[in-house]
């Protein structure tokens, strides 16, 4: 049988799914054991006990200086910034993307402008944001918006343009006005794409958030990682990285489930 025709069964699929993760953990453990055998106070590759201790300290014991449970307060601070940035980007993408996709005049006005703006490297703008908006949350949220929104606007405008011309004509023959067609024909068809687009922008959004927090902040997951870096606290950095990844993965998964639940037809179309 050809390789392209051989498929794993359910059990094999699960095993294969877990395999890379297991290998990664095994490789890490081996490295950690080797290093700790040589030097019990090695900080680079802490063992499980080290992690458990650090996680306990960060998540379940109040910080002696502020009295806060640091992991949770960092998570809340970061997520507020992240979702504020993504929320603003989503609204912008929806409004501008639909307008650019549907109205030739606005397309002529905005499409080249958005294309140019999306090429500005967001991190290069960060100093400007810090100077103009201060070091608070506003500048960090602005960085996420600048980094994420132009791509989303372009993606949604393309999606709106991609709708078959026949559909729009058909809607016109049913008596729809521009507004009605936007509301009932275009909007519902690009919303699933908006969610997918949001999922794809999760990792750039995290990138910009952590970059901004690393440079100037007093709380947040990115801030904590870069703070403890000074003390080589790998026992804190590793769990934080895993936690951030987990948050992103869960958000990604939830968004996809929401798309399927709210827009069942979008899944049908994919299969058709």
């Amino acid at each position: 049988m050809r390789w392209i025709n051989t498929r794993p069964g359910r059990g094999a699929q699960l095993t294969l799914l877990l395999l890379p993760f297991v290998l990664l953990i095994a490789a890490y453990s081996a490295g950690s054991v080797a290093r700790l055998a040589e030097n019990p106070s090695d900080k680079l590759l802490p063992n499980l006990a080290g992690f458990a201790d650090a996680i306990n300290r960060m998540a379940f014991l109040p910080d002696p200086r502020t009295g806060e449970y640091l992991l949770w307060s960092d998570t809340v601070a970061s997520l507020i910034r992240l979702f504020a940035g993504l929320g603003i980007s989503t609204v912008m993408a929806l409004v501008l993307g639909m307008a650019i996709g549907m109205l030739p005049y606005l397309r002529a006005l905005l499409s080249p402008f958005v294309a140019v703006i999306s090429m500005v490297p967001p991190l290069a703008v960060l100093p400007i944001l810090f100077i103009v908006m201060g070091l608070g949350d506003a500048s960090k949220i602005a960085l996420i918006v600048i980094g994420v929104a132009p791509t989303m606007v372009r993606d949604l405008a393309l999606k709106a343009l991609e709708l078959p011309r026949e559909q729009i004509i058909k809607a016109e023959t049913l008596g729809g006005s521009s507004w009605q067609i936007a509301l009932r024909v275009v909007l519902p068809q690009i919303l699933p794409r908006l969610i997918t687009c949001l999922r794809l922008q999760l990792s750039p959004a995290w990138l910009f958030l952590i970059a901004a927090e690393a440079i100037s902040s007093d709380s947040g997951l990115g801030y904590r990682i870069f703070l403890v870096r000074r003390y080589l606290s790998m026992d804190i950095i590793f769990p934080y990285v895993v936690w951030i990844t987990l948050l992103a993965v869960v958000t990604n998964y939830i968004l996809d489930r929401v798309r399927i639940a709210v827009f069942p037809w979008s899944e049908l179309e994919k299969q058709a």
Binding site: I169, K170, T173, L174, V185, P188, W265
Partner: peptide, 20 residues
């Protein structure tokens, strides 16, 4: 000069709305 409700149309494809 634009499509309207007095003239209905059926195309070979894409005549119906996939989200409804």
């Amino acid at each position: 000069t634009e499509p309207g409700r007095d003239r209905g149309v059926v195309f070979q494809r894409y005549s119906v709305f996939p989200h409804l």
